[in-house]
Amino acid sequence: MASPCELRLYATSQGFADRAAEAAIAEVDRIEQKYSRYRHTSVLSAINRAAGGDAVTIDSETSALLQYADSAYQQSDGLFDISSGVLRRAWNFKSGQLPSEREVANLVAVLGWPKVELTAGKVRLSQVGMELDFGGFAKEYAVDAAARVCAEQGIAHGLVDLGGDIRVLGPHPDGSAWQIGIRDPQQPTQAKLVVPLKSGGLASSGDYERFMVIAGKRYSHILDPRSGWPVENTFRSLSVVAPLCLLAGTAATVGLLKGVIAAPAWLDELGLPHCWVQANGQTGGDLGPWQS
């Protein structure tokens, strides 16, 4: 994982902290290796290689992750779809060129979570060319898993941060909240907002990392799996707080796909605190306090 990662743990001795950190890092590495799209030896690569062929036997962890993906697909009306990664084949944001309507339509025909056959202990991608991508939730899962490992090592005060996906293990020892900075989409090295967090997870999703402007129109990498085209009129960034980083991440991803109008109402209905930064730099949501 290329993004900056950070573990901040309070412990009674250096040895104690080192042991917890070592165990947490090992857990993150394990998950990264198991579900990386880039590693030939990963479980994910094995599943993708068998697309259109036989079902692949999977272990209980992979099975539970796929069940979660299934649940997220259902609850988001199809917006959260881990088979949508194939759209990358058409969309190259460095090229500055739009894909053809047909190219996109062909890929949309291949993708789709309902085409994934998930049975007890087995998964099968029913069409040749299909591909799963855990990028949308494996990192958030790793954050929660690392937090669990730290808690099991006896850490009661700490924070796990994998490139902006965060899980807090408990407040600072004096009881005060962690101050989590939310990146400014205009100046990503600076914090636009600061969110106080004593426990739970926080994850953000943004459309500013990869995009291209063609004929005055902005095309971001937030692609609607149903159309294959970038979502219009959404937030520059959306951050969600939930009991687990995984839930926060899923809600942020789906929220961004829902767009400016539908996302706040949907998050309110879920009962998840959130905040956003709009294209014009305006901020909103029910997470505070705000930093100008």
């Binding site: 808690a151 009661a156 408990g170 426990s199 739970g200 009991p243 687990l244």
Partner: peptide, 11 residues
Amino acid sequence: LQAWDRGYLAR
């Protein structure tokens, strides 16, 4: 209880 609510009980 949700699992994340069990922190105090586990102390």
